Simulated assay, not measured.
Amino acid sequence: MQACSQSNRHHPAQLSALSLSIPVAMGYVPLGSVFGFLLVQAGAAWWLAPLMSIFVFAGSAQFMAVPLLAAGAPLGTLALATFIINLRHVFYGLSLLHRLPQGRCARAYLVWTLTDENYSLFTTLPGGTPAAQMLRIGALNHFWWVLGTLIGALIGAQVSHALAGIDFSLAALFAVLTVEQWRASKQFTPIAIALAAYALACWLVPGQALLASIALSLLAGAAIVRRKRPNPTQEAA
């Protein structure tokens, strides 16, 4: 009984939003700091970095925007590039429609904060998890990103040389989230599909490997779901 109670204590449903968001904070704070630092080093005012993180909150798209803004790219180019990079979030939202809160404002905010890391956390939560818990997680992770951005922007405004190497935390963060996904579902098939899809995409279209691997993973996932779906003809028989 004691062992069972100890294991339940660490179940996602029993953990606070703060506890669940700490692994994301370990990646968001240093990565946000790198973004804020780079944006200020590119010539932007320090306050633009946290402002962008508050109203955009799209990590990879924000990093992409730094050289484009430095080169004076038009807003249309920035908007199109952001749309392409974040197109995968549409599929994230579709898979979570049944778990989104009913209120318009709460639903809109949760959809807006549906980053890769938030999606990974949400899919490890039990089906009966209250929408308020998901909102708290999304808000906390948004806060970590803004906090990191502010720290990096303030540092960037004070120093004149670039920092390198800290961006390794993004890969480490995704590795931790992948392990947590496997521990929650005990299914290695999604990981195997993702690895195989990326390897195939790197071989076929190395210039668009990420987009191609996402498309291949979606096709494989749809095929698996269709194969597992019961046949109405067989059920009737």
Rank of each mutant, 00 (worst) to 15 (best):
Q234S: 12
T189V: 10
L177V: 11
M64H: 05
V179G: 09
P130E: 04
A196S: 15
P12A: 03
L15P: 04
L170S: 07
G127Y: 03
L216P: 04
G43K: 08
N86K: 12
L68A: 09
W47K: 01
F57V: 12
D167C: 11
A71C: 02
Q208P: 00
G32W: 00
A106R: 00
L173R: 02
S16I: 10
K186Y: 15
L110P: 03
H11L: 08
G127L: 08
L154N: 01
F37Q: 02
A108M: 13
R88Q: 03
L173Q: 00
H11C: 13
W144V: 03
A108C: 05
A81Q: 03
A106H: 06
I166T: 08
L177Y: 05
L31G: 11
A45P: 06
S95F: 10
A209C: 13
L80G: 02
A131T: 12
G128W: 12
H161M: 10
W46N: 05
G93P: 08
Q62P: 06
G103S: 02
A106K: 07
Q208V: 13
I54D: 04
A215Y: 03
H89V: 05
L219G: 12
R107M: 02
I224H: 05
P67H: 01
L15M: 14
A108R: 09
Y119W: 14
V111L: 10
R99M: 00
A196G: 14
M26W: 06
Q41F: 08
S213I: 07
P230H: 11
A175E: 06
S5G: 14
L140K: 07
L18H: 06
A201C: 08
A79W: 07
G43A: 10
L216H: 05
G103K: 04
Q62K: 06
F91G: 07
I22Y: 10
G148R: 03
R99V: 07
V111A: 13
N141C: 14
P126K: 07
A172G: 15
R99S: 04
A175I: 14
Q234P: 01
G148N: 04
A17F: 11
I191T: 13
T178H: 06
R229K: 14
A215F: 13
